[in-house]
Amino acid sequence: MFNLEGKTALVTGASGGIGGAVATALHTAGATVALSGTREAPLRELADTLGERANVLPCNLSDADAVNALPKQAADAMGGVDILVNNAGITRDGLFMRMSDDDWTQVLDVNLTAAFRLTRGVLRGMMKSRWGRIVNVSSIVGATGNPGQGNYAAAKAGLIGMTKSLASEVAPRGITVNALAPGFIETAMTEKLTADQKADMLSQIPAGRMGTPEEIAAAALYLVSPEAGYVTGATLHVNGGMAML
């Protein structure tokens, strides 16, 4: 089950906790991977750990030209892109009334617009090969909202709408498009939370703990696997029961 031998996967945000775990899981399942992210050093480190079948493609996702060029770079490096995991995300939290245009735009650009551009860039190859897997890493807050995250929640909810629209368009061509919505996961992003915020969060999670990046990676592996060919337009929530949607 879930064998990805012979498949090629581009994972953005691979320098982060979830992205790194996703890339590792896909690689372990046999895929050739292209690791993308803003910071080259952690990407290189991960590639060295993975060994063969790992490519490093640094990319600044707020730079439209760089984003548009990435699918071709990935295809050149791996011979194609069968799987795209749009995982990269940033936060610029702040109360809505005080949120700057810049904080809004940056979060939308990286979390939503970059996913759009990358997806558009890989579709041609997937259409031709009549097989493709796109996973957009959304978030629980895209469905539930979260105070202080108006920009982030908007982008993550946007990914879900984008996922469903595209899923309908390309389903006849063997391409599935799904969203994956993690709850609170132990990563650098959630490390920023204060102890009080964490305690408050934990009280709302029936599982009584935060999730691990590996638990998100396992869900991503399922969605990109040949076995999940009939799953499309779905949002898979992995959140310890925090929101049952």
Partner: peptide
């Protein structure tokens, strides 16, 4: 052809 077919034909 459907609309997706026409895009593919052009490609």
């Amino acid at each position: 052809a459907d609309s997706l077919d026409t895009v593919e034909l052009v490609m």
